[in-house]
Every structure is written in structure tokens, then in C-alpha cells.
């Protein structure tokens, strides 16, 4: 007797389809990124993907899991890409590779593999590296610096010295440092007037990368891969807190637009905080999760010790996710008046 449980009809979907679509959604952002800093980012994506797949394969083998099935699910590649996109594009290859291996081995497989990790693996890797290698993690290419491919390769693979010209800072970091150094003597509007660094809104070119992520995120929402809750709550809370402080003291606090389009805000809102495994799943839970992540990201990036706060914000909210979900269970069909 044959046994196959209903339903016999199934929607054409799979984990690898979902992950592939997430990767596809990252493409506009990656394209803008590559246009901004050159092919370095593509090299980092390849390095991270390779490291992720090797680590994934090794761990699957150790754990006695079917290799082909899990290697092709695409989750390791998504982690790898998020790492590559959050690290400085000219970071040495070993840093990106180490981070990726750490993410896959420790943050993912030691917790039980796909679907079991309480923390977003990419953000764990980012946090570990920014704590362990703060100098390297702060070396962003100077604005407008477009090294040719060979030179970028040489820098990434350590074949040529890490020239000082490379050690710029992100617009976020630059603004924070400038404000701190000036000690209230320079105001934000004055700083932002520097079009070379800050571009039209939030950092020359970076705003286009953010726009690319936004575009990809909207596409994922349209495809039903993510729901609107987390990105909307994230953006809303970031706008609310930055807007409130900006209105209160425009000289000291940058505008909401600056905060939205700089650093990891867009990537975080659409691609990182929406990670279903480590995030909230109930509609109300997602709103709280997104709002909390947006708020914490702002607080850390403006008042904290790190140039950007998205990674720590997401990790802190990951901690709270099970409790939030537990408290936010929606009322079910027919029981709404009781709830």
C-alpha cells in the first residue's frame, strides 16, 4: 500500500526558491554598490559565498545530514551575501571568510542548523568582527576612490599594502566623528553641505545603494517573501526618533532621510530584521520587533560607540523575539471577542 498524506496538490515552492528570491532581491543594491566602489564588492560576495558553502558542507558532513539537499537550500549563500554587504568592501579576504565561517559554524550549525538559530548568523559575524577587528572594520574606501580591479584584488588578498587612502569612513561614521570633534561648533547642515562626502541626502552614492535595497525589499514584499510589518515598523520608528530629535535640535541631529539612507538601515529593514528564523512571526510581534530594531539602531549609531547600530539592534531584538511572539499570539477564528 502506498502512503502519501494529503494534500496531494502543492504550491510550487521550496526553501531554495525562497532563498534564491532573497538573493535576487539583493541584486539592485549590489549593482549600485558595485557602481559606487567598483568590483571589490563582487569579489567579497564570491569569497563569502565560497567560505559559506565550504563551512556548510563540512558541518553537514560532521552532523551526518544530506549534503545536496541542504547545500542547495541557498540559506548559506544568503548569510554570506549579507556578510559581504555589511563588511567594508576592501576588507581583507580572510576577515570576510573568517566571519562567514563563524556565522555558519557557530551561529548556525552549533545551534542546530537551518531554522534553529536564535540569532541572525550574518549579524553575529558582524558583531564578532567589529569587536575583534575594529580597525579593519572601520576601513572604508575613500569617497570617489575607484581602484581598478587588479588593485582592488591586491588589496583584498593582501598583495599590496593597505594604503591610507583606503581608510576612509562611512558617512555615518564621518558625521559622528565630526560632530564629536567639533564639540557643537559645527552643525549638521554645515557638514551635509559637503557634497563630496554626503551626496544629496546621506552619503555620496550610498543613498543609491540604499535605494537599491529598498527596491529589492519592495519586490520581496510584492512576492510575499516578507510581510510589510517589519520594514514599516523599522522605518517608522527610525523616522520617528530621528525626526523628533532633528526637529528638537537640527544642528546636532541629522534628518530622518539621512538616517534612512545611510549605513545599514535599508538593508536592515528589508533583509536582516525580516529574517524569519531569528525574528518574530506574529503580525503584532513583527511590528514590535521592527520598531525595536529601528529604535535601537538609531540609539546605538547616534549615542553608542559604534558607527552603525543595525547589527546590534537586530541581535538584541533577536533575544526578545520568543517572548514578544509568546505575548503577541493573535486571536484565532471565532475567538476574537474573547481576546
Amino acid at each position: 500500500m502506498m502512503f502519501a498524506p494529503a494534500p496531494f496538490l502543492l504550491k510550487d515552492t521550496s526553501v531554495s526558491q525562497v532563498m534564491t528570491q532573497v538573493c535576487l532581491a539583493l541584486v539592485p543594491g549590489i549593482a549600485a554598490y558595485a557602481w559606487l566602489v567598483g568590483p571589490a564588492i563582487l569579489i567579497q560576495l564570491v569569497v563569502a559565498s565560497f567560505a559559506a558553502l565550504v563551512a556548510e558542507a563540512a558541518l553537514l558532513k560532521l552532523r551526518g545530514k544530506p549534503l545536496a539537499m541542504f547545500l542547495s537550500d541557498g540559506s548559506a549563500v544568503v548569510t554570506a551575501w549579507l556578510i559581504a554587504l555589511t563588511f567594508p568592501p576592501l576588507a581583507p579576504w580572510w576577515l570576510v571568510a573568517t566571519a562567514t565561517v563563524f556565522a555558519i559554524v557557530v551561529a548556525k550549525h552549533l545551534y542546530g542548523g537551518l531554522g534553529q538559530n536564535p540569532f541572525n548568523p550574518a549579524m553575529v559575524a558582524f558583531a564578532v568582527c567589529i569587536v575583534s577587528f575594529p580597525a579593519l572594520m572601520a576601513q572604508w574606501p575613500s569617497v570617489g576612490l575607484q581602484l581598478p580591479l587588479v588593485e582592488q584584488l591586491n588589496v583584498i588578498f593582501g598583495l599590496s599594502p593597505r594604503v591610507d587612502a583606503l581608510s576612509g569612513a562611512t558617512p555615518l561614521d564621518a558625521m559622528k566623528t565630526a560632530l564629536k570633534l567639533a564639540d557643537g561648533e559645527i552643525d549638521v547642515a554645515h557638514l551635509l553641505a559637503n557634497q563630496d562626502l554626503y551626496g544629496n541626502f546621506a552619503g555620496r552614492g550610498w543613498e543609491w545603494v540604499a535605494a537599491g535595497y529598498l527596491l529589492g525589499g519592495l519586490w520581496m514584499w510584492q512576492r510575499g517573501i516578507i510581510t510589510w510589518h517589519v520594514p514599516v515598523a523599522f522605518v517608522a520608528s527610525l523616522v520617528a526618533i530621528s525626526g523628533a530629535l532633528w526637529l528638537y535640535q537640527p544642528a546636532h541631529f541629522a534628518s530622518p532621510l539621512f538616517h534612512l539612507l545611510s549605513g545599514g538601515a535599508m538593508l536592515g529593514a528589508f533583509f536582516i530584521a525580516t529574517d524569519p528564523v531569528s525574528g518574530c512571526t506574529t503580525p503584532r510581534g513583527k511590528l514590535i520587533f521592527g520598531a525595536g530594531a529601528g529604535l535601537l539602531a538609531y540609539v546605538i549609531r547616534v549615542f553608542g560607540g559604534y558607527p552603525d547600530g543595525v547589527a546590534f539592534a537586530v541581535l538584541l531584538m533577536n533575544l526578545c523575539a520568543p517572548l514578544i511572539d509568546y505575548l503577541c499570539q493573535p486571536a484565532i477564528f471565532g475567538m476574537k471577542d474573547k481576546a
Binding site: 541542504f70 531554522g115 534553529q116 510575499g224 510581510t227 524569519p276 512571526t281 484565532i332 477564528f333 471565532g334
Partner: peptide
């Protein structure tokens, strides 16, 4: 495969479970 908690099932459930 393992559950990735994507929540598709919860969105599809007519009894909102």
C-alpha cells in the same frame, strides 16, 4: 526540510492558527 518559520502557513490558515 526544517521549518524556517517563514510564517506562510500562518498566513494561509483559514482559522488563523
Amino acid at each position: 526540510m526544517p521549518c524556517i518559520r517563514c510564517g506562510s502557513c500562518a498566513r494561509a490558515c483559514p482559522h488563523e492558527l
